[in-house]
């Protein structure tokens, strides 16, 4: 799209609401294709990947305007190839980066040209990692992605796993409805829930819009071809081409982005909190 930015909207913003602040401009080092953002409420920071520059950028929680990141992970030691999405464990101070057949783990406080502190990689991992989320309470790492010939799946690892390790559980299959995991997803440790946006089809012709897309809720205790406990916004709902999802537990809300609507939707959904 024409203009990279991170826009911040008030929680109750609706319709043509004006952003309360924007982070944008050359000094921010931001690029377009920011396919992930995580807010760290313990340290009041947020983190985004920079795919073109192969970097991880951390900003002050209150960053505004053309503000430089407080930390940048970038360089030859990082192994970063196409950092598209990421996950954060603010409790154990770690940043997780899915990267196809591997997951890189960095110290949250790392900056500059640093190597990952752990890497999950190898044939036993079954990884086709495109997105992930960390449950720091139950020490779980949930990795989503698609492997050609296998399909989209959620792989559940121990948080501290490394090397060529098998997942503890795999959620996927025709009953699961996990056709093409759409974007970054969330976990809600208090209820052992995994909240995933699903495009509903991996068919390229449905890239623009699909009435099959939805946000699904699974459990971190699921294993196998398990359907979601709930679907939100679809199939055949308001969502046209769902992208990312995050949670506002205090207000019992699920926040969802939709590419085709070019919009941010908030669903009040107390049932899952």
């Amino acid at each position: 799209m024409a203009h990279p930015q991170i826009a911040a909207f008030a929680r109750l913003a609706d319709g043509n609401a004006k952003p309360v602040r924007k982070i944008e401009g050359q000094k921010t080092l931001l690029g377009r294709t920011m396919h992930s953002i995580v807010y760290d409420e313990i340290h009041d920071e947020f983190v985004v990947p920079q795919q073109f520059g192969q970097a991880i950028l951390t900003f002050r929680g209150g960053a505004d305007g053309e503000e430089v990141p407080v930390r940048v992970i970038q360089g030859s030691l990082t192994q970063l190839r196409n950092p598209d999405r990421l996950g954060l464990d603010p409790v154990h101070n770690e940043i997780f980066v899915p990267q196809g057949n591997s997951v890189l783990v960095f110290s949250r406080e790392a900056k500059g040209n640093v190597a990952p502190i752990r890497v999950i990689k190898g044939p036993d991992t079954q990884l086709g990692a495109s997105a992930l989320a960390v449950d720091p309470v139950h020490d779980l790492l949930v990795v989503g992605g698609t492997v050609r010939g296998v399909g989209s799946r959620l792989l559940i690892f121990n948080r501290t796993d490394q090397g060529n390790v098998k997942p503890k559980a795999v959620i996927g299959g025709p009953k699961s409805g996990l056709a093409h995991i759409s974007g970054p997803f969330a976990v809600y440790p208090a209820k052992n829930e995994i909240i995933v946006s699903v495009r509903g089809s991996s068919n390229e012709s449905n890239e623009m819009s699909s009435d099959k897309c939805f946000v699904g809720v699974w459990s971190t205790q699921d294993n196998g071809d398990v359907p979601p406990r709930w679907t939100i916004g679809g199939p055949k709902g308001i969502l046209r081409m769902v992208r990312g999802v995050d949670l506002d537990p205090k207000n019992k809300s699920v926040i969802v982005t939709d590419k085709r609507l070019n919009a941010v939707l908030t669903f009040y959904f107390p049932e899952m909190f």
Binding site: M1, A2, H3, Q5, A7, R11, N16, A17, K18, P19, K22, R32, T33, M34, H35, S36, I37, V38, Y39, F46, R85, G183, P184, R243, G244, V245, D246, L247, D248, I255, V256, T257, D258, K259, N262, A263, V264
Partner: peptide, 11 residues
């Protein structure tokens, strides 16, 4: 708003 393909979101 200048929103363009809002892929992720964080609260």
């Amino acid at each position: 708003l200048s929103i363009g393909n809002p892929h992720p979101v964080a609260y």
